[in-house]
Design a protein around this nucleic acid. Structure first.
Length: 154
DNA sequence: GCCAACGTTGGC
DNA sequence: GCCAACGTTGGC
């Protein structure tokens, strides 16, 4: 069982949207490192922190979800109408993958990036370290459990 | 809108 | 394989 943080822009797709639909195809990943993590390490049942990025004061962790389908070819790469079509991807050997994510809970409020950054227990979390721009961030059980405990105090 | 910190592309 | 140019992410 592994733990992840997955970023989304809430004006595109928020925790509320995930709660409403229940299960969502997490498409649009166009980064090889992230693809490899999804392909090699992400398993059904893994736990996910849902992170709202580019959201001003509301930037931070919004709730939790779990992986409910393992990596499969991202259909949006072949759709010229999609946000990120990839004409170089071969349908016989698709370049990009996606997973399905299932809503678990929405936090009472956002656990803000500010709070995460100022918490001495999370100094070594990849989320707050310099240079990280990946949309999926490996998270330890310890970090996940700690963040859940924080969320309960919100 | 700015900019740091990447990743990708393509010429050589 | 190197590297300049360019594109993207995402915090601020």
């Amino acid at each position: 069982m592994k733990y992840w943080l997955m970023k989304t822009e809430p004006n595109e797709f928020s925790i509320d949207d995930l709660q409403r639909v229940g299960v969502e195809m997490w498409d649009g990943v166009r980064n090889y490192q992230v693809r490899n993590m999804m392909r090699n390490e992400m398993m059904v049942g893994d736990s996910v922190l849902v992170y709202h990025s580019n959201a001003g004061e509301e930037t931070g962790i919004a709730g939790t979800a779990k992986i409910c389908r393992k990596a499969y070819p991202d259909p949006t790469q072949f759709d010229p109408e999609s946000a990120h079509p990839d004409p170089k991807s071969d349908p016989q050997n698709p370049r990009w993958l996606c997973v399905d994510v299932e809503f678990i809970q929405k936090f009472k409020r956002i656990l803000t990036l500010k709070e995460i950054k100022s918490d001495p227990n999370l100094l070594d979390y990849k989320l707050v370290q310099k240079g990280n721009r990946l949309s999926v961030i490996p998270t330890t059980k310890k970090q996940f459990d700690y963040i859940l405990r924080l969320a309960k105090t919100l």
